[in-house]
Design a protein around this nucleic acid. Structure first.
Lengths: 342, 342
DNA sequence: TACAACCATGATAGCGCTAACATGATAGCG
DNA sequence: CGCTATCATGTTAGCGCTATCATGGTTGTA
């Protein structure tokens, strides 16, 4: 009775209507329905209206997995960052996200936890998803990762710092930022200047800032002592201050690797009754809002993080759209914010 | 000469080796190679070794898109939040991310910008990716979105607040949190208590806290005036303080909707020379680290955000693995942190 | 009127993988 | 020793969509 075929193997993924069913309902072929949805200009306006009506009526949701397989490209953008606990990366992701999402791209977020092996794993996975592009924080990758990416023909964008990039690169010069702050501290008359950072091995961009800082001090004939903490955050900043005063009683200025540390130290200095900047100057890096709300306001360097994400995304999109890329590298710069803490 | 078939239509996605090629290199069939990679226990150990060797040698990267299409399931978890600018969601995402990633799931992150239409769009897109589950912040959705999800047979997890959920639910009782803080302020002897929040229409969880707050005050026969700001952040907190003092000169305590506002106000009070808590008490919500580093420490309510993410992810994973779910709903609670600001 | 150029649509053949079923070999058992 | 149970592997047929080529109709042009 039933019109059922012998059908030895049935395997429908779900009860969701398929494009074919939409096409039948609209009285066109599947490919026309496909075009009506994805390349509207290739289809007669009236035909398209019929297809859209059928889509609406059947509650059709396109199977993007099938579409990606057939077209060998997804609208995924792989984004790899070393940490989600750090505002800095979050703001870059925000910039990327709003720009990519507006163009219909979907971000695949990966977190390496500062582990290059993990990065390699993530890259492998993301390649398996036929991502349209890869955005990764930083220029340092494992050899395996480089090899994998070398054979990949899609745009690769490295953000955060500038240097010898695999493909596209948007960032800022951290060494120069370190120099800039060191010069500022020298101008303020400081001669006993300490740098305090956390895990500079992982947070190697902070390490680059230290190098710039050190370069400037040593050129002036000064020492550039370093205290390295084993973790970051406000608490660590407070602890770092204590340690700094113990080990370098004569210190007149501390250049912290970031605003979290600097803010923690500054607030702790207030509790200890240390007058900032008269007895001790404190500087940070990042330009977080909190630094401009405490008294004295924190001297720091502001990096345009969200803009960095937006610019990176725009450049990737330009490339994906086949437009000419003028420059592979963009320096987003930074801005010295002089507060009352130095 | 060439062994080329007549091949009317060729369409290889890339030069990447395919599973079939790996299988040939290992001298097995494609399905065996597939099993060697995805169901190792179903394949003889020696065979598997040969396959893995071939994978290594050819630099094979599995095409996850094809795999998902064939198996009608991806290892994607859709995560929808209203904003990335708010630490609160970031920390929940962190908890989700670490837990899901450890089990081999990939998060698809969507940002609604507090727009339920946008949420609907995101849900549609994510369904199209055959996600294994959906995690969304909050219980409020558009009707279209509810309809779409009603016909979906995968786990749905709503996080942040508790209430009548679609499926699974992990969160805390914001009304009770508002009550809790109001009671604390009453205990401290305050009778002129003001609530200051931002965009309570969007941030309706803050609205729930206000309702709890108001309930307690009104039960005591007190008024519960509200000032609503048009944006959040430290600046807004400072501005909120100014406005509060203008409109309610006799206010003795301000209950801010979150720590950003409260911290901004507290730091601004210091600049204005207002003694906290003697002249004015200030309370917040969230339990951000900065609140415990300023002087006086901020009285606030800490919510276990990262834990909320971890728990939500674990529960979803339990469900996906077919294990029994004891309870659909989990209250992660909150903790009143009494600082010196009240 | 003949020809090219374009437009709208369709038939076909995959994309790379895995579910479902099938098969043959080996082990277990009375 | 014949029977079933288990294991290891293979064959087949899709998953739902789109690239490619083909086709027929319409318009423009000399």
């Amino acid at each position: 009775m039933s019109n059922e075929a012998h059908s030895p193997r049935r395997r429908r993924g779900s009860e969701q209507p398929t494009l074919k069913e939409v096409a039948e309902a609209a009285g066109v072929s599947a490919i026309t329905a496909s075009r009506a949805l994805n390349h509207p200009d290739q289809v007669n306006e009236r035909t398209r209206a019929r297809v859209l009506e059928a889509v609406e009526r059947l509650g059709y949701v396109p199977n993007l997995v099938a579409g990606s397989l057939a077209s060998a490209r997804s609208r995924f953008i792989a984004v790899i960052v070393p940490s989600l606990a750090n505002t800095v990366f979050i703001e870059v992701i925000q910039g990327l996200q709003e720009t990519f999402e507006a163009q219909g791209y979907q971000i695949l977020l990966g977190n390496t936890d500062y582990d290059t092996k993990r990065e390699y794993q993530l890259v492998r996975t993301f390649l398996g998803w036929s991502c349209s592009a890869l955005v990764t924080a930083g220029l340092r990758h494992s050899q395996a990762c480089r090899t994998l990416l070398a054979n990949w023909d899609k745009p690769i964008m490295e953000v955060m710092e500038l240097g010898e990039a695999l493909d596209l690169n948007v960032g800022l010069d951290h060494t120069e930022a370190g120099r800039c702050m060191a010069r500022h501290l020298l101008e303020r008359g400081h001669r006993q200047v300490l740098f305090v950072g956390a895990r500079l091995e992982s947070d190697y961009r902070a390490g680059m800032r230290y190098h710039g800082h050190r370069e400037v001090l040593e050129q002036t004939g000064l020492a550039a002592p370093l205290i390295e903490l084993d973790h970051g955050g406000l608490d660590a900043g407070a602890a770092g201050l204590t340690r700094a005063l113990e080990k370098h009683g004569d210190v007149s200025a501390i250049h912290f690797a970031n605003d979290d540390l600097a803010t923690g130290a500054l607030l702790h200095a207030q509790r200890l009754g240390i007058r900032v900047p008269h007895e001790l100057a404190i500087a940070g890096f990042n330009g977080l809002p909190i630094g401009q709300h405490i008294t004295p306001r924190l001297t720091t360097i502001r990096s345009p993080r969200q803009h960095m994400g937006q610019l990176a995304a725009s450049e990737v999109i330009r490339r994906l759209e086949g437009k000419r890329i003028q420059r592979l590298q963009h320096d987003v710069g930074f801005e010295l914010l002089i507060g009352e803490s130095t």
